[in-house]
Design a protein around this nucleic acid. Structure first.
Length: 479
RNA sequence: CGGGGUGUGGCGAAGUUUGGUAUCGCGCUUGGUUCGGGACCAAGAGGCCUCGGGUUCAAGUCCCGACACUCCGACCA
């Protein structure tokens, strides 16, 4: 009987089939439900709580930097979308259109926003007149729609939640600094809070955002060695400003165009967390965003005093600022242990009559299943310390994965060889010619992920054309 | 959008070759016994077999079509 149950609830081992493992997790940990529209999912409370925690952290970061939240409409008239040529070309293939309102056919069809540059631009053109109006540091939390061909929960859905920042500045220097500062915020969010090491860098022209002058990115490596673009920040120059007429009188009373940025992170980060830290038992969640940081499991809870003590312990931890779940359901302790491991709760406390007698409880870490006996009066300090070490440990594990699966290559053959058996990141020199970049993609299957800020010299010449090469590029298979 | 796979109570499957009363396990409900790694016993409830058309006395099963999920490719946060 117990065996059958295990079979039913089993998560496909990640080494056997990583994609199936991912799908099993999002369903079994109650993160999503499929809706009747292809590519659109229900984000269930457990996953949404993670998103809310990400929002709180990042929203706090940008508010501290002077950014303000706004809400833009979700519809963009076709004529507005078409004002910037590169932009519309980039997005046209994947926009959803509204052609009818009620029973009336619309004069002009409306696109459901795939991103809101055009709306921000139109608005900025209305409200900006003087250098005194600048900068405008706007952000919105919303959902956007992109009619993707193939979809996967969190990683690529037709509607997804994100944050899009859109700022305009009086000078190029200030706008460029904003672009890079935000990239640093993204890197901090990922590394410090989500425990995901990232590579910061610039996208090649081929990979940059439609309409951008420069696109910057943070690239993370998933457990299977594939890359996940986890955040992106663009410098637009004055391209949009000119297309939309965002002008202001500068200090010398000359009419000038603004310099613009935009940047975003999305619920894709949740997919990143799953694929960075998860294991065959299920999720492993970074403490900073875990909806439950400590699960309290009473053992022999019908015995007098057990539930009372468990409730007291849970409350003590809540008072100390932790997110705590006391599970007093009728499930067996073993079931609860497995359940909270599957859900990735960083710490579990087991508490039974034997412990209570001795004034202790058992604390178990999700990452290594290490058990330790902790006196009640030590609990808040030990929990804080263990959460801290937990975060460091899962960061280090992800960092080791990144380091051990990043290789240098000087020739196409070496690049191909690097992908033996599994996906990896490959560092190689590049001459800067887009044709060579394309050749590498064709020959190895890897697009350029980014030109890292931290450059290394891994060779002297481009592996494709043999010409001198000075830029080191990270290539990899992407989600 | 191209190529595969799948669709049967909430979940996982059998049944489809050879058409003939809808099966099993888990979960759920109720009662009882349990409780330190997914407990056990007993009694119950729950199904237009994805949807739409055909063929047939009769369709989960055969034929045609749609849709969804999923994997592998081309594109993206």
């Amino acid at each position: 009987m117990a065996d059958n149950k295990k079979l039913v609830n089993a998560i496909t081992p990640m080494d056997q089939d990583f994609a199936q493992w991912y799908t099993d997790i999002v369903k079994k940990a109650e993160m999503i439900d499929y809706s009747s529209v292809r590519g659109c999912v229900v984000i269930r409370p457990y996953a949404y709580a993670i998103w809310e925690n990400i929002q709180k952290i990042f929203d706090g970061m940008i508010k501290a930097r002077g950014h303000e939240n706004v809400a833009m409409p979700m519809f963009i008239p076709e004529s507005l979308l078409q004002k910037e040529k590169d932009h519309v070309e980039g997005f046209a293939p994947e926009v959803a259109w509204v052609t009818q309102g009620g029973s009336e056919k619309l004069e002009e069809r409306l696109c459901v926003r795939p991103t809101s540059e055009t709306l921000f631009c139109e608005h900025y053109a209305h409200i900006v007149h003087s250098w005194r109006d600048l900068p405008k540091l706007y952000n919105q939390w919303c959902s956007v729609v992109r009619w993707e061909k193939t979809t996967r929960p969190f990683l690529r859905s037709r509607e997804f939640l994100w944050q899009e920042g859109h700022t305009i500045h009086a000078t190029e220097e200030e706008a460029r600094r904003e672009t890079l500062d935000i990239l640093d915020c993204y890197a901090e969010l990922c590394e410090k809070y989500l425990c995901m090491p990232v590579i910061k860098g610039r996208k090649t022209d081929r990979e940059k955002f439609a309409g951008a002058e420069e696109t910057y990115t943070i690239e993370a490596m998933m457990h299977d060695g594939k890359a996940l673009q986890s955040g992106t920040s663009h410098y637009f120059g004055q391209g949009f400003a000119k297309a939309f007429g965002i002008q202001f009188a500068d200090k010398q009373n000359n009419l000038a165009y603004v310099h613009q940025t935009s940047w975003g992170i999305s619920t894709r980060l949740i997919g990143g967390i799953i694929m960075t830290h998860g294991d065959d038992e299920g999720l492993v969640l970074p403490p900073a965003v875990a909806p439950v940081q400590v699960a309290v499991v009473p053992v022999a809870q019908h015995k007098p005093g057990v539930l009372e003590k468990a409730a007291e312990v849970a409350q003590t931890l809540r008072d100390a600022g932790f997110r705590v779940k006391l599970d007093d359901s009728e499930q067996s302790p073993g079931w609860k242990f497995a359940e909270y491991e599957m859900r990735g709760v960083p710490l579990r406390i087991e508490l039974g009559p034997r412990d209570i007698e001795q004034g202790v409880c058992v604390l178990v870490r999700r990452d290594n299943r290490e058990k330790m006996t902790v006196a009640f009066d030590q609990l808040p300090q030990v929990a804080a310390q263990q959460l801290d070490e937990f975060a460091k440990a899962i960061y280090q594990k992800a960092k080791d994965n990144l380091d051990q699966n990043t290789v240098c290559a000087r020739t196409i053959d070496e690049m191909k060889a690097a992908l033996e058996g599994r996906a990896r990141f490959v560092k190689a020199m590049w001459c800067g010619d887009e044709k060579c970049e394309e050749a590498i993609k064709e020959l190895t299957g890897m697009p350029a992920r980014c030109i890292p800020f931290e450059q290394e010299k891994v060779g002297d010449v481009c592996p494709v054309c043999g010409r001198p090469a000075t830029k080191m590029v990270v290539f990899g298979i992407a989600y």
